[in-house]
Amino acid sequence: MTKPNYDALNVGDAIPSFTTEPVSRLTLALYATGSGDHHPLHLDQDYVRSKGIPDVFAHGMLGMAYLGRLLTQWVPQAAIRSFGVRFTAITQVGERMVCTGKVVEKLEHAGEKCVRLELTCANEQGEAKHKADAVVALA
């Protein structure tokens, strides 16, 4: 991994993006195992239909995990100072998640050179599911 350089980065620069495979029922089952969140809203179609919801949908934290991967593909995890997300829409089965990020600020934080990133997890139609913000320390 080539670590990004603070001086070479400018506000507006994009970080490398990726698009996930479509979120499947298997993805949700795997995430339930990995996360320990077995809420039936994400797994049990009979349950969700009994609640008047047409289908199971993705765990919000799955999308945040994708954005975490976007960060750790760009910098070693130890460089991440903070990472926060607002959940704005539900991710449906079958959607691919487009994960993108850009530099929105260069700052000094606790004596370190840092960049603030704006990250978005959206579907292929551009509907944002999660909007996130991260501060990353760079040399």
């Binding site: 993805t27 795997l30 995430y31 990995g34 996360s35 320990g36 799955l62 995990a65 994708y66 991967r69």
Partner: peptide, 14 residues
């Protein structure tokens, strides 16, 4: 064990 499943679920390859 659990982190292995978390990585698989989230598409982690590292």
């Amino acid at each position: 064990w659990q982190l292995k499943w978390f990585a698989k679920a989230t598409g982690e390859t590292n």
